[in-house]
Amino acid sequence: MSDTPPIPCTDLIVCPKCDAAYSLQVPPAGQRAVCDRCGQVLIDTRHKAGLQIIAVSVTVVILIIAAAIFPFLSIQAGGARNSVSILDSALAFSDGPLIALALLTAALILFVPLARMMLAIYVLTPIVLDRPPARGAALAFRWSEALRPWSMAEIFVIGCAVALVKITDLAQVELGPAFWMFAALVILVVAQDRIMCRWSVWNSLDEEPAT
């Protein structure tokens, strides 16, 4: 065993979290390959995952755009009334130096999730159609992955819940259509993230994908 020839790099898979090396065997669809040392999921394949991800992503794109336009929340107290969209609430910090925070909030809850969905559609559509990868697909997927921790739609929803409880005794609150759209899109964003197997996407962007 000691003088085994060096294994070609393409036959190996290395856990990014703990650096354990394994010889690569792609599990059958629907099964996962897990690092035995640290428990990191290395490969998580699924039947028709690409098509599902595209479908979910398209839905989310539509929902994000709609949710940004329609009224989100409105309050009423003593004859005064105020109604806001999601974009309004993101841009609430718009006086003075807080404008940076306004742009940041808008990015975290709307533009980053939107961008990630569009990048996923761009990268996966040619793969699903068995075409060669789109131009700049690697770069696109790289961005999509880099933006992943900064997509905070689901945190915004919890923030909404907290804010609503805070003002219910101050004023009467009404939930607009955008509120329900946003609630739905958050679930879809999480689902999209769950179905996507990063290894499979990177592998299919390779010139000679492993099978």
């Binding site: 005064a80 105020n82 609430s89 909030t105 905070m152 923030g159 909404c160 003002i167 609150v173």
Partner: peptide
């Protein structure tokens, strides 16, 4: 986000 929602909504 709570601050963002509150300060955009509660402008009466």
């Amino acid at each position: 986000f709570v601050v963002a929602i509150l300060s955009s909504l509660v402008q009466l």
